[in-house]
Every structure is written in C-alpha cells, then in structure tokens.
C-alpha cells in the first residue's frame, strides 16, 4: 500500500518541473497535471497552484476553479492513510452508514477531516464499481469489500501497527 506522502517533498519540485515540461503548451492537460500533484503531494498546495498557473499559462482562478470542482482534488493535506467509505446506492443499501459511524467513532473525526497526528483522513466516495460485494471501503485507493462494522477497530489497529513498523525501519 502506498501512503499518501505529506511529509517529505524532497525531489518533488524537480519532478513537477518535468511533468509540466511534458505538458507544455497543452492547456487541456490541466486535470492530468493536477492528478499527478494530488497523487504525489497528497493535496494541491497553494505554491504548486501558482507554479502550474505560470507554466501552463492558465489563470490561477481557473486552476482553483478546477481543483474545487472535482472531488478528487483537495486543498488540505490528507492523512497518511486515507480511508474512504463508499456511500453509493448499493453500499448504502447494504449498511454503509453503519460502517461510516464505526469509523467516525474509532477515529474521532467526521468525513473530510484528518486526525490530529496526520495519520488518518476519513472520506466518502460514490461507488467503486464493486457494488456486488458491498459495502466497500478503500484505504489509499486500495479497495476492500464485504465490510462489517465489527472489522473497523481491527483495521484501524492494524494500520497503526503498520505505520509504527514503517517508522522503525525509517
């Protein structure tokens, strides 16, 4: 599982330059560039928006406009583990609201928030396309099906352990 990076941004600036160079002169690629930024930065920081606006010759207001329109982009940093509960029709009918409640309780945050230690963000998503095994959640874009409220505590605990382990290795 690849964690949304929020800590270390070493080297990212240089890579951003490269990405922007590859899309030079193509205003229509704005969403693609933002996609890359969201994936690598974990959000779209203000200073990056400015760089994109200058390099792609798109007004800053347009960049902001696009970011705020699409659910995928965020202006705030996300936690290390981004947990999204699917709230599509199929998942809703099979108990998604209970899954969400369990996560809210377990993490002590509401949807669209991040825990104080930047470890977890909670979000809602509309349909992962795996409706037949609803309810579904995704953890850093990795889908998990047949969720049950009872599993939530276990999942959160496992992620915490995993993160501790990763820190040790670092």
């Amino acid at each position: 599982m690849e964690a949304a990076t929020t800590k270390c941004r070493c080297g990212l600036e240089a890579e951003l330059e490269k990405v922007l160079a590859a899309h030079e002169g193509k205003k229509e690629d704005l969403i693609e560039v933002l996609y890359w930024v969201q994936k690598n930065y974990g959000y779209v920081p203000k200073e990056v928006q400015v760089v994109i606006s200058e390099k792609m010759k798109v007004p800053l207001s347009t960049v902001y406009d696009v970011i705020t329109f699409y659910h995928l982009f965020s202006l705030k940093p996300k936690g290390k583990y981004e947990i999204s509960v699917c709230n599509g029709t199929a998942c809703h009918l099979r108990g998604a609201p209970f899954i969400l409640k369990s996560f809210e309780k377990e993490l002590g945050i509401k949807p669209q928030d991040t825990t104080g230690d930047n470890m977890f963000s909670l979000g809602l998503i509309r349909c992962l396309g795996a409706c037949a095994v609803a309810p579904n959640i995704s953890i850093n874009s990795e889908p998990h099906g047949r969720m049950e409220p009872e599993l939530v505590t276990k999942i959160v605990k496992a992620l915490k352990e995993k993160s501790k382990l990763a820190d040790c290795i670092e």
Binding site: G88, A90, C131
Partner: peptide, 12 residues
Amino acid sequence: DEGVPGVFMDRS
C-alpha cells in the same frame, strides 16, 4: 464516466 453509483457494467 459511469457516474451513477450502483452500476458497473462499463467498468467490467
């Protein structure tokens, strides 16, 4: 785009 939640034939 298959934006309607609860369908997944296009994905499939």
